[in-house]
Nucleic acid binder design. Structure first.
Length: 429
RNA sequence: GUGAACGUAGCUCAGUUGGCAGAGCACUGGGUUGUGGCCCCAGCGGUCGGGGGUUCAAGUCCCCUCGUUCACCCCA
């Protein structure tokens, strides 16, 4: 083994480390989310990070980019094909079925905070491992539930202070209306094949709806004249969509109907929606979701409608950091215990221990720093107080308590010092 | 997967037509033999992303590669 030639090992491409200084903002975000979910009556669900590959093939859909080229799939030692979860809805549906949750009072409302894995080319706001917060509500096809689910996300963004976002709403129809509509759209696209880009022609058969998303100018022009699904829904879907928009409005949430909004999972039916942020780059979607009335059945469960969404934790933080500079930061210790002589180190160590047992965050030097160096550290740590112990304090059996905000100093017993800090922390709250 | 830009100290970045690898911040010590913040001095810290090539000489030019960023695509 040659130490000199050891190459540094870096985090895998598209992944990142979450350092101590990054934690408080993230923790605050998650706490806020948990609180919001609780108020709306959602219970937390956790599932394994890997599932049988079949779940995603059947659930998300063979034609999707996620399944076709973005999954981390491997064979385990029993030659079973496993996949690191690329999204949350299919696993949640699997758990719903596996635990017979259809016998619980419906709807069953769940939330999650999970890492997701997709083999994509990384860029800002797009990672190979990222975290999503999500909710899934199973067992009701009421448009009020679509609206509630959207309301949960809008409330979350609002309470996080995420501004500059826009809600886009659409309906993808159902089995009854989507089939005939896609037929009509295909016919339209074939008629205009010569005017469209190569990609649009390629996806004509697989997913013609995608052409609405094409950025090529002349494609956009053609698509202006294309039949629109929202305007071509079956009566039931049209009623549903109208009710969803009404109930979204009742919550005071503004939105735009975007007939071109097509999402990348095959399971969507009826409602689809997306929140986009003006503060992100090209990866402007912060959260999105929709209704999936056929998904549970597709993975072998009883016919059960559902609706939900996922939102990217990293993208929320990215957008927040671009608009706010007051996100939570690490909490400084209450006390930094300073030893001014070698003989005082033992007493300092014990004093720090006592403080910690009393509920006070206390730090001390381990590097053998000079008195000045320790004071500098005390200052940098942000501690309110420095407890200073040197030969004088040892002789007097006292400790010097220095208020690092005011510079005021007192020589008191260690009992009084601990008491003083506890009082200061109490009144500081 | 495609295209473009960029990789120099822990961080943010200079580095001229190829000619001794730098600054600020951070870190350590000192100025103050027991006192932080401001200031001053000094120190520590570098496989110049990696490999190959051209050259007397490469951080600088060429090729490959890895990574990051931006865009396409897709999505959170």
């Amino acid at each position: 083994m040659s130490e000199a030639s050891a190459e540094p090992i870096l985090a895998p491409k598209g992944t990142y480390d979450i350092l101590p200084e990054d934690q408080p903002a993230r923790r605050w975000l998650l706490r806020t989310a948990e609180e919001v979910f609780h108020r709306y009556g959602y219970g937390r669900l956790d599932t394994p990070v890997f599932e049988e590959t079949r779940l995603f093939n059947r659930g998300v859909g063979e034609s999707t980019d996620i399944v076709r080229k973005e999954m981390y799939t491997f064979l385990d030692h029993g030659d079973r094909s496993m996949t690191l979860r690329p999204e949350g809805t299919a696993p949640a549906a699997r758990a719903f079925v596996e635990h017979g949750m259809h016998t619980r009072p419906l709807p069953v409302k769940l939330w999650y905070h999970w890492p997701m894995f997709r083999y994509e080319s990384p860029q800002s706001g797009r990672y190979r491992q990222h975290h999503q917060l999500g909710v899934e509500a199973f067992g009701s096809d009421s448009p009020e539930l679509d609206a509630e689910v959207i309301g949960v996300l809008a409330t979350l963004y609002d309470e996080l202070g995420l501004s500059g976002i826009e809600l886009r709403l659409n309906s993808m129809g159902c089995r009854v209306c989507r089939g005939p509509y896609t037929g009509r759209l295909r016919a339209f696209l074939r008629a205009h094949q010569a005017e469209m880009c190569g990609e649009c022609n390629e996806r004509l058969e697989i997913n013609p709806l995608r052409s609405f998303d094409c950025k090529v100018p002349y494609c956009c022009e053609v698509m202006e004249g294309a039949p629109r699904l929202v305007e071509d829904l079956c009566p039931a879907c049209a009623d549903h969509h109208a009710a969803v928009t009404r109930y979204v409005g009742l919550q005071g949430i503004s939105f735009v109907t975007d007939h071109r909004l097509v999402r990348g999972m095959d399971y969507y039916t009826r409602t689809t929606f997306e929140f986009v942020s003006a503060d992100l780059g090209a990866q402007s979607g912060v959260g999105g979701g929709g209704r999936y009335d056929n998904l549970v059945e597709a993975i072998g469960g009883p016919p059960t409608p559902g609706v939900g969404w996922g939102t990217g934790v990293e993208r929320i933080l990215l957008a927040l950091r671009r608009t706010r500079d007051d996100l939570p930061r690490p909490v400084p210790p209450g006390v930094y215990v300073v030893a001014f002589s070698g003989a005082a180190r033992e007493t300092a160590f014990v004093l720090a221990h006592r403080l910690r047992r009393q509920g006070v965050a206390a730090e001390l030097d381990f590097q053998g720093r000079s008195p000045k160096g320790q004071m500098k550290q005390a200052n940098r740590s942000g501690a309110h107080f420095a407890f200073i112990i040197g030969d004088e304090e040892l002789a007097a059996n006292r400790v010097t308590v220095r208020d690092l905000y005011t510079g005021e100093e007192r020589l008191i017993t260690s009992d009084d010092a601990v008491e003083a800090v506890l009082n200061a922390e109490e009144s500081g709250r």
